Measured scan of single mutants.
Amino acid sequence: TYTWNTKEEAKQAFKELLKEKRVPSNASWEQAMKMIINDPRYSALAKLSEKKQAFNAYKVQTE
């Protein structure tokens, strides 16, 4: 089980997950979700809006 003390740690864990699963920077949210949804870190960020925000930040960083 994973635990995160801060929102920032949770966001980092979520981005690490995207990186580890090699989600391409041109992937849509739907494509990315299919690649990461079974990992416990997918739940790091509770709100869908937070997940999408972190995903978009990840995409910008990896382009």
Rank of each mutant, 00 (worst) to 15 (best):
Ala32Gln: 01
Thr3Ala: 09
Gln53Ala: 13
Glu20Val: 05
Ala46Val: 13
Lys15Thr: 15
Glu50Phe: 03
Lys51Arg: 07
Ala10Gln: 08
Lys19Asp: 12
Thr6Glu: 06
Phe14Pro: 00
Val23Cys: 04
Ala54His: 04
Lys19Phe: 15
Asn26Arg: 07
Ser49Ile: 05
Lys19Leu: 14
Ser43Thr: 10
Tyr58Pro: 02
Ala27Phe: 09
Val60Pro: 04
Ile37Asp: 09
Ala10Asp: 03
Gln53Cys: 13
Leu18Ile: 05
Phe14Glu: 00
Ser43Lys: 13
Leu48Trp: 06
Ala13Tyr: 05
Phe14Thr: 00
Trp29Glu: 00
Glu8Asp: 07
Glu9Cys: 07
Ser43Arg: 09
Ala54Pro: 01
Ala10Glu: 08
Ala57Cys: 14
Asn38Phe: 10
Ser25His: 12
Ala32Lys: 00
Asp39Tyr: 01
Thr62Met: 13
Thr6Ile: 03
Leu18Asn: 00
Met35Ile: 10
Ala54Cys: 12
Glu16Val: 04
Leu18Gly: 00
Met33Ala: 10
Ala13Gly: 03
Glu63Cys: 15
Ser49Phe: 04
Lys59Pro: 03
Trp29Ala: 00
Ala32Phe: 01
Glu63Gly: 09
Thr6Asp: 13
Glu16Tyr: 05
Phe55Pro: 01
Leu17Gln: 01
Lys21Pro: 01
Asn56His: 13
Gln31Asn: 09
Asp39Ile: 01
Lys34Arg: 13
Ile37Arg: 10
Ala44Gly: 04
Gln31Ala: 09
Ala44His: 02
Leu48Glu: 14
Asp39Arg: 00
Trp4Tyr: 12
Lys34Tyr: 12
Lys59Thr: 08
Ser43Pro: 06
Leu17Ser: 03
Tyr2Cys: 15
Lys52Arg: 10
Lys59Tyr: 05
Lys34Trp: 09
Thr1Ile: 15
Lys47Cys: 14
Pro24Leu: 04
Tyr2Pro: 15
Glu8Pro: 04
Asp39Met: 01
Glu16Phe: 06
Val60Lys: 14
Thr6Tyr: 03
Tyr58Ala: 03
Leu18Tyr: 00
Glu50Lys: 03
Met35Leu: 12
Met35Arg: 06
Ser43Asn: 14
Glu9Gln: 05
Thr1Ala: 15
Lys11Ser: 15
Val23Ala: 01
Asn26Met: 06
Lys59Met: 07
Asn26Asp: 15
Ile36Asn: 00
Ala32Glu: 00
Asn26Leu: 07
Ala13Asn: 05
Lys19Thr: 14
Lys11Val: 14
Thr1Glu: 15
Glu50Thr: 04
Ser28Trp: 03
Gln12Phe: 07
Ala54Ile: 09
Glu20Cys: 06
Leu45Asn: 01
Asn38Ala: 15
Lys52Gln: 09
Pro24Thr: 04
Lys15Ile: 14
Val23Met: 03
Thr1Asp: 15
Ile37Val: 11
Ile37Lys: 13
Tyr2Gly: 15
Leu18Lys: 00
Asn38Met: 11
Lys15Ala: 14
Lys51Asn: 02
Gln12His: 08
Glu20Gly: 04
Ile37Tyr: 11
Glu16Arg: 05
Glu20Met: 05
Arg41Tyr: 01
Lys15Trp: 15
Ser49Pro: 06
Glu9Lys: 02
Arg22Asn: 11
Glu8Tyr: 08
Thr62Cys: 14
Glu63Trp: 05
Trp4Met: 04
Tyr2Asp: 14
Tyr42His: 02
Pro40Asn: 08
Lys7Arg: 06
Asn26Glu: 10
Gln12Lys: 07
Thr62Leu: 13
Met35Gly: 04
Tyr58Asn: 04
Leu48Ile: 12
Glu20Ser: 08
Thr1Cys: 15
Lys52Val: 12
Lys34Cys: 13
Ala54Phe: 05
Ala54Val: 08
Ala10Tyr: 02
Lys15Cys: 15
Thr6Met: 05
Thr6Arg: 01
Lys21Arg: 09
Ala10His: 03
Ser49His: 12
Ile36Gln: 00
Val23Ile: 09
Thr6Asn: 08
Tyr42Ser: 02
Asn56Gln: 12
Trp29Leu: 03
Ile37Gln: 08
Ala32Gly: 05
Arg22His: 12
Lys7Gln: 10
Gln12Met: 07
Lys52Cys: 09
Ile36Asp: 00
Phe55Ala: 03
Glu8Val: 06
Leu18Cys: 06
Trp4Phe: 05
Ala32Asp: 00
Thr3Glu: 15
Ala10Thr: 03
Gln31Cys: 11
Ala44Asp: 02
Pro40His: 09
Ala10Val: 02
Trp4Ile: 05
Glu20His: 06
Asn56Val: 09
Pro40Gln: 06
Lys11Tyr: 15
Tyr2Arg: 14
Lys47Ala: 12
Tyr42Glu: 01
Gln53Gly: 07
Ile36Val: 05
Pro40Asp: 07
Lys52Ser: 03
Gln61Glu: 13
Glu16Asn: 10
Asn38Leu: 11
Leu18Glu: 00
Lys15Pro: 00
Ala27Thr: 12
Gln31Lys: 06
Leu48Met: 12
Thr1Arg: 15
Tyr58Cys: 05
Gln53Trp: 08
Met35His: 06
Val23Arg: 01
Thr3Gly: 08
Arg41Pro: 01
Asp39Thr: 00
Lys11Arg: 13
Met35Tyr: 08
Ala44Thr: 03
Ser43Val: 09
Phe14Arg: 00
Arg41Met: 03
Thr6Ala: 02
Lys19Val: 15
Lys47Val: 10
Ile37Gly: 07
Met33Val: 11
Glu20Asn: 05
Glu50Asp: 09
Arg22Glu: 09
Trp4Ser: 08
Lys47Leu: 13
Phe55Val: 03
Lys51Trp: 05
Lys47Gly: 10
Lys59Gly: 05
Gln61His: 07
Met35Gln: 06
Lys59Glu: 04
Glu9Tyr: 03
Thr6Gly: 05
Ala27Ser: 11
Lys52Asn: 04
Gln31Arg: 08
Ala27Asp: 02
Ser49Thr: 11
Leu48Gln: 07
Thr3Trp: 14
Lys51Asp: 02
Ala44Val: 04
Gln12Ile: 08
Ala27Trp: 09
Thr62Gln: 12
Lys7Leu: 12
Lys34Phe: 10
Gln31Glu: 11
Trp29Cys: 03
Gln53Lys: 14
Ala13Trp: 03
Arg22Asp: 11
Gln12Val: 09
Ser28Tyr: 04
Leu17Val: 06
Pro24Tyr: 04
Trp29His: 01
Pro24Trp: 02
Leu45Gln: 01
Glu20Thr: 06
Gln12Ala: 11
Asn5Pro: 09
Ser49Lys: 08
Asn38Tyr: 11
Leu18Ser: 00
Pro24Arg: 05
Thr6Lys: 02
Tyr42Phe: 10
Pro40Leu: 09
Glu20Pro: 00
Ser25Val: 08
Tyr58Gly: 02
Val60Asn: 14
Leu45Thr: 01
Glu30Gly: 10
Lys7Glu: 14
Glu16Leu: 07
Pro40Met: 08
Asp39Lys: 00
Ala27Cys: 11
Lys15Met: 15
Asn38Gly: 11
Ile37Phe: 14
Phe55Gln: 02
Thr3His: 14
Pro24Met: 04
Ala46Asp: 12
Pro40Arg: 06
Lys11Phe: 15
Lys59Gln: 10
Pro40Ser: 05
Glu50Ala: 05
Thr3Arg: 05
Tyr42Val: 02
Ala44Glu: 03
Leu45Phe: 05
Gln31Val: 14
Ala10Gly: 07
Lys19His: 14
Lys51Gly: 02
Trp4Pro: 14
Thr6Phe: 03
Ala27Pro: 01
Leu18Asp: 00
Tyr58Ile: 03
Ser49Tyr: 06
Lys15Gly: 15
Gln31Phe: 10
Ser28Val: 06
Asn26Lys: 07
Gln53Ile: 09
Lys34Leu: 13
Ala57Asn: 11
Trp29Asp: 01
Arg41Glu: 01
Ser28Phe: 04
Ala13Cys: 12
Lys19Ala: 14
Pro40Tyr: 15
Ser49Gly: 07
Gln61Cys: 14
Asn26Tyr: 11
Lys21Ile: 05
Lys47Asn: 11
Asn26Trp: 13
Lys11Pro: 03
Pro40Phe: 13
Asn38Pro: 06
Lys59Ser: 06
Glu50Ser: 05
Glu9Asn: 03
Glu50Met: 04
Ile36Pro: 00
Tyr58His: 07
Ala32Trp: 02
Lys21Gly: 03
Thr62Ser: 14
Lys52Phe: 09
Asn5Gln: 13
Leu17Cys: 09
Ser25Met: 13
Val60Leu: 10
Arg22Thr: 06
Glu9Val: 03
Gln12Thr: 11
Lys7Val: 13
Ser25Gln: 13
Arg22Ser: 09
Met35Val: 05
Thr3Lys: 08
Gln12Asn: 10
Glu9Arg: 01
Arg22Trp: 05
Lys19Gln: 14
Lys7Ser: 06
Leu18Ala: 00
Pro24Gln: 04
Leu48Val: 13
Leu17Gly: 01
Phe14His: 00
Gln31Asp: 08
Asn5Glu: 15
Phe55Met: 04
Lys7Tyr: 11
Thr6Val: 03
Ala13His: 07
Lys11Asn: 15
Glu50Tyr: 06
Ala46Lys: 12
Val23Lys: 04
Lys47Met: 12
Thr1Phe: 12
Glu16Met: 07
Lys21Ser: 08
Glu30Lys: 08
Glu50Leu: 03
Leu48Arg: 05
Glu16Thr: 09
Asn56Gly: 08
Phe55Asn: 02
Lys21Met: 11
Glu63Ala: 12
Ser28His: 09
Lys7Ile: 12
Thr62Val: 13
Glu8Arg: 07
Ser49Trp: 10
Gln53Pro: 02
Phe55Gly: 01
